[in-house]
Simulated assay, not measured.
Amino acid sequence: MSRLFASLSLFCAFCTVTSVPLFAAEPQFDTVTLAYTTYAQPRVFDAKVEATKAATVSAQTSGRIININHDVNDLVPHGSALLEITNKEQGAELAGAEAELARAEAVNNEAQAQFIRYKELFPKGAISKGAMDEATAEAKTSTQAVSAAKAQLIKAKENLNYTIVSAPFSGRMTQRFVEQGETISYGQALFSGYDNEHLRAVFQIPQQDLVTLQQLDKVNILLANGQMISATDINPFNFADPQTHSHTVRVNFTYHNNTDLQVGQWVKVIAEQTSKPSLFVPLSALHQVGDLNSVYRKSADKIVLNQVRLGFIDKQKQQIEVLSGLMPGDEVILDAAQYLIRSRAAKAKE
């Protein structure tokens, strides 16, 4: 009676036909007994690829551009020279700073030697207190002058180095704001680019998925070329968008093959979630005619065609979820196609 009521409710809810007997049971056909199991149900989100590091390189000195070594869309290694600026003025500043340091060191050597001599003579009364104080002050002043000259030398060297603009990290050039021969000034934008290895997938999730994403240890990122990447750096935002009430999620990952994946492309982020207990049948047990999905179920000494409503497909295990039409303990034919062929052949011989 419970089987009859289940069939009638299935007919009313999903407009299906009830199971009807077809052929006598044949023991040589393998069957599988159904039982509740849990599975990892994937949730798939559309995500956009972004760069975790992007920068606009600006001029740190002034001058005229004499050479541009890279252009838009070039892959640039870290530290590579992007462009060169005239360096005569900076070179002259460096030479002056070196000369000033040499002079300061010479004055300091003389002041320190005089301070040592006065320090030895002062206890003997050969040097007055005023002369000793003056020697002490000159020794300290000359030491500070050397430090200041060294600082100016460092600054001059840096200004000279700034005439060669280098890439702050490896990546791809996206914009060039200057041309060869232009005179640039301090702070003027020169190039823009991004790191093409350290990326992130950004997508939106509804409120009900926030807790699940926060508990996940990893997600899979499916690229357009079919490659799958596992990522463990998952960062769901703890605040929602006031307009859509959705949460942004960032998944950071590293990808070294920079010819297959670019910033701005779309990828699939697959988050596996544990489902409630469900019934599964092998894909080979499924009999499909148009939109009708059925299995051959063993009922006493008969085999009946039992219509089912299907859900999630587990391609790895080659099985499919049954939402309605079957119950735990039911036995279904493992290979529906083989059963149908052999049963029709046996019926034709009768």
Rank of each mutant, 00 (worst) to 15 (best):
E84T: 09
D330V: 05
A35T: 13
V304T: 13
K140G: 07
D260C: 14
A59N: 03
H70F: 12
G91A: 11
R117L: 08
F191N: 00
W266H: 14
T38G: 05
A145W: 06
K53F: 10
I234H: 07
N73V: 13
N257Q: 08
G193E: 01
D133Y: 06
L305M: 09
V20F: 12
C12W: 12
R250C: 15
S278W: 00
V57Y: 08
Q114G: 01
D291Q: 08
C15L: 13
D335T: 00
K157N: 07
G187P: 01
F169H: 02
P282L: 10
D71E: 14
R64H: 04
I65R: 03
Q28C: 13
G130V: 06
Y339T: 00
A135Y: 00
T141C: 09
F203T: 01
S58P: 02
K150T: 14
P77T: 07
L340S: 06
V322K: 04
P168S: 08
T232S: 08
V322E: 06
T136V: 12
R250V: 12
A81G: 10
G125R: 01
E26H: 08
L8T: 14
V17R: 15
L34A: 09
T136Q: 15
F29G: 02
Q152W: 08
I164M: 09
F115R: 01
D209L: 10
S7G: 09
G264Q: 04
F169G: 00
N252A: 15
F203P: 00
